[in-house]
Computed example of a mutant assay.
Amino acid sequence: MDDILFRRTVEELTESDEHLAALVEAHGTPTLWLRPAGFPSLVLFILEQQVSLASAAAAYARVLDRVGSMTPAAILAATPEELRTDGVSRQKDRYLRALATAVLTQRLDLDGLAELDDDGVRRELTSLPGIGRWTADVYLLACLGRPDLWPVGDRALQVATAEALGLDGVPTQAELEDLGERWRPHRSTAARLLWHGYLDRRGRVETPVTVLG
């Protein structure tokens, strides 16, 4: 996914889908939101689990300020007590240490993920504690730029889809999976448009890439 392909798929989707067209009319076309592939982005995605983007970004910034550079070795060198002070829960501390250890021991080849298909990336990432389908899917979408990702476990996407389609209730993951079929094979772009509308209606923005340091 690059800017040219993103603009092209936005045009294609909005020409064929009145709901996405209305979103773009109301909120504009977002910039292509991507994060660099690698360890820092995975750390931030883990911190974003089940909390607000703002809370996760603040915790990440405190950890980064403490360790100086967001690397596996730096995370392992910090004590659990220090990371707890920075806003990292015991559970997420365990997840971050498992990720850092996997990268350092080369159990997880982060650079090699780009060579795998979507399911292969999911298998590699979800083999680690604390990395489930949601984290793997948003890494595929935002860091590897895959064009047809649809993270059904994302609460904001569930709510955004309900709002955009005028549904009576928020869809379950299974229902969201079915709803997303209308936008295949450009579900990553559809998700970006839905997220943008969701955040804009609430006066929020995506976490800037500069947070990663």
Rank of each mutant, 00 (worst) to 15 (best):
S52T: 12
T161R: 02
L125W: 08
A73L: 14
L212C: 07
L5T: 13
G169H: 15
L64P: 00
L104V: 00
E115T: 12
T189K: 01
L149T: 07
L141Q: 11
L83E: 02
L104D: 00
T29P: 02
L141T: 03
L116T: 01
G112E: 15
T31P: 04
V43W: 04
Q49S: 10
V121T: 04
L167W: 14
R123G: 09
R184G: 02
S52Y: 10
S16P: 00
W134R: 12
Y139P: 01
D93T: 13
L113Q: 03
G145H: 08
A37R: 10
S52Q: 13
D178V: 14
T189A: 05
R122W: 07
A78R: 01
G28L: 09
G203E: 09
P72K: 09
R204G: 11
L125R: 13
E82C: 08
S188Q: 09
P171G: 12
A57V: 07
E177K: 13
Y139V: 10
L53G: 01
L157F: 13
A190F: 04
G180V: 03
E11D: 14
G203M: 11
P171N: 10
R192A: 15
L157I: 14
L83W: 01
L125D: 14
L20I: 02
F39R: 10
E18V: 14
A136F: 03
L128E: 05
R201M: 12
H27K: 02
Q50H: 09
P185A: 13
A98Q: 12
G68Y: 12
R184H: 14
G120E: 04
F39Q: 07
L47W: 01
Q106H: 14
S16G: 10
R184I: 07
G145S: 12
V170T: 14
V10E: 00
H19D: 04
D65K: 12
A56T: 04
A98P: 06
L149R: 00
R201L: 11
Q49L: 03
R66K: 14
R35Q: 13
V103M: 08
G112F: 06
L104I: 10
A26Q: 15
Q173A: 15
S41P: 05
V63Q: 03
E25T: 14
A56V: 05
Q106D: 14
A22Y: 07
L23G: 02
